[in-house]
Design a protein around this nucleic acid. Structure first.
Lengths: 125, 125
DNA sequence: TCAATAAGTTACCAGACAGTAACTATCAAC
DNA sequence: GTTGATAGTTACTGTCTGGTAACTTATTGA
């Protein structure tokens, strides 16, 4: 078989990776799935992300159809709730497979520490 | 459970994605696995990549322990052969899962066309 | 009326990443 | 001894990404 050349932008792998390579996107999807669904709550869980970048990443994920954004006005200050779409949920399953490969193959202290706590969290659900 | 915050660099998912988000890396790994193991041959399959970037990506993959680089001097011009390491092979399996998710969830003409030809190639092996 | 809280937006900047074009090294064949 | 092939390297440039800091809007409660 011959194509006229491979290209990132027409490759499903590249396109899938794009969905989750926003530096924080896998983490954001993970947190939302586990009930951390408010802007402020997400920020508290990721102290190193700025509001600007968090907003951008959330908007991206929304555009890509991976999360829903529900604004509830008529409350104290405006409240915004995020949740996973069906596509988002199925992507989460894929991310868990990536997670498993990573913990099996990138063995060092840092990742092992986080790995253990995340596995615990997954077991709880 | 409480951690003191999630961070990309200590997350196995982020670190795994880093391995394959060199824009061309999934494609390069795919091609090498399927016997396209020479610098020039890789270039011909990816007309849009420059020699500079191809070199960089190959060096990265080598550093990350995903491919081997064998130089055979004592031949006409110097010849270089690339091959997957065991880690590289196991990562390829993961990439196939990402591929499957992508083709199932990112349905458009461009990706479907490539998808069919790649699935054919996978069946051949 | 003034501070606080939630959820942003805007302007600006620095570094990483990808691309182009030209140059290099080695050997074989003509 | 010049051309051609393989496999690069180097210098330069432009774009994309992520980050900081200050400002914004709406509403509640003291």
């Amino acid at each position: 078989m011959e194509t006229n050349g491979y290209d990132t932008y027409s490759c499903p792998v590249g396109r899938t990776i794009e969905l989750i390579s926003g530096r924080w996107k896998p983490i954001i999807l993970y947190l939302i799935q586990h009930g951390i669904n408010r802007f402020g709550a997400l920020q508290k869980k990721m102290p190193k992300i700025s509001r600007k970048v968090l907003t951008e990443q959330l908007r991206d994920l929304e555009k890509q159809g991976l999360i829903n954004r529900d604004v509830r006005v008529s409350k104290h200050p405006q409240e915004v709730f995020y949740s996973l779409t069906d596509t988002g949920l199925s992507l989460r399953a894929l991310i868990d497979q990536i997670f498993d490969w990573g913990t099996a193959n990138l063995l060092d202290e840092a990742s092992q520490t986080i790995a253990r706590s995340l596995l615990l969290a997954r077991a709880e659900k």
